[in-house]
Design a protein around this nucleic acid. Sequence first.
DNA 1: GCCAACGTTGGC
DNA 2: GCCAACGTTGGC
Length: 163
Amino acid sequence: MQFWLMKSEPSAYSIHDLEKEGTTGWDGIRNYQARNIMRDKMQIGDLALFYHSNARPPGIVGLARVTKKGIVDHTQFDENSKYFDPKSSPDAPRWEMVEIEYLETFSKELSLKTLKENPLFENMMVIRKGMRLSIQPVEKDDFIHVCKWVESKLADQYLEVSA
DNA sequence: GCCAACGTTGGC
DNA sequence: GCCAACGTTGGC
């Protein structure tokens, strides 16, 4: 099992939207590095920290799990979508995505400020200057640190399954 | 809304 | 294949 951090602007799609929907295709990713992670690295059952970017405050707010992979992101063909990509074609889709499932909204939000201040999180990619990759790998130890800090109610049982 | 830090594009 | 120009991200 692997661990990830996935960023979303809450004004576009928040953890509460995911809670309402249950599952969602992680569409709109137009960065090759992030796409490659979804395409080549993520596996069904992987756990992801849900991060609110461009928020007040920005930070980790919840937990999700990868439920499907290898899905074509159809917004790339939709001329009315802000994610439309004129260079992609249905024959050779450029953008693919995973589907994630809602697991939990943490009762405590772990803000970026705290992530930066607490040495427990000093190894995490998200606090690095200039880091804007919207899907990032997270080390298992760091994942556990985060889940403990936010007093996650569900992380333990999913970690047990993988052990 | 600003703007620094990145990533992508396209001319050459 | 370089790199300037442009576009985007995302904290502040």
